[in-house]
Simulated scan of single mutants.
Amino acid sequence: MAVHRELPPAKLAPTLAEIARGVRRDIVTTIGQAGMGHLGGDLSVTDILVAAYWRALTVDPFAPDAADRDRFVLSKGHCAVALYSVLASCGFFPRSALETFGGPLSPLNGHPNRVKVPGVETNTGPLGHGLPVAVGCALGARLRGIANRTIVVLGDGEIQEGSNWEAAMTAAHHRLATLVAVVDRNRLQQGARTEETKALEPLDAKWAAFGWEVRRIDGHDHQALVEALAPSSTGRPVAVLADTVKGKGVSFVEDRVEWHHRVPSAEQLRAALEELSG
């Protein structure tokens, strides 16, 4: 099974919606059973990851290290359960492996590890590292003469890290048109709202000032995501500002700062799965 850009457009929206619903069920189940995780951010980024893996990226779960594969970097590595759930949905490893998350000797740790998990391009966790790595991936592909693409997903809180803006300036200078940076703009970070911690807006103007092609969309609209993840139309790197809701899909988690890394109780897990069953 290869996951690539050639899914039938007519079937795209219902297919991705169904996949995303299943991924969200896997996320809440995995975190609930393990007693650890970052539920709010996992749920906000789900639709972005589903659109990336099931539509935008050219990858093959049976050849995860193929030289010409597209690269995906989850900079907000604390949302590893969302990445693991999407990789499992694509066939990189059995869904049953999600049951081992956080357990002794499990390859599925709280942050993704490229040595242990097929489909993971780079270890992430310290925020502000993913975009610099992605810039390196895009530059490396150019040097090797490979026409693959690189997509990196960042949390909006981590945009406060200066390393991102150094990388953004470098990407624009080298006109890395094969690079797409997606900001999961849920407006919450650990402990507070982003605008209370360190204001980010006008975020679109800031990316544009650094020389990027900017696309602002509803980060839960699958068709909008697919279109936004399309190649650059200007020869510049693309910044997708995906407006999302932290905890999307579970009403008592949505837009609640305390659910950054809270674990649902057994009763809350049942309620969340019921909401996600439709």
Rank of each mutant, 00 (worst) to 15 (best):
I151C: 03
H111M: 13
G162Y: 04
T197A: 13
G40F: 09
E213D: 10
P118H: 04
S233H: 07
V73F: 03
D204Q: 11
A168G: 10
C79H: 00
D221K: 08
A134Y: 00
S163W: 09
T234W: 11
A97Q: 14
R175V: 07
L269K: 02
F101E: 00
I146V: 14
H222W: 01
G157A: 14
A67S: 10
R69A: 15
T29L: 06
L203Y: 12
K11C: 05
S96Q: 13
P231K: 12
A242M: 05
I48K: 05
L176N: 03
T46L: 00
Y53H: 11
M1L: 08
V240P: 00
L200S: 12
A168W: 03
G155H: 06
T194P: 02
A228P: 09
A167L: 13
G249A: 06
P132L: 14
K248N: 08
V135H: 04
K76H: 02
V214A: 03
R95S: 15
V50K: 05
S44Y: 02
A13M: 06
D42G: 09
Q160L: 11
G219E: 11
A242Q: 05
T15E: 07
A199F: 10
R262D: 05
V153Y: 01
A141Y: 14
I159G: 02
T30D: 02
L16T: 04
L154D: 06
R185A: 11
N164T: 02
Y53T: 04
R193Y: 03
R236N: 10
V240G: 01
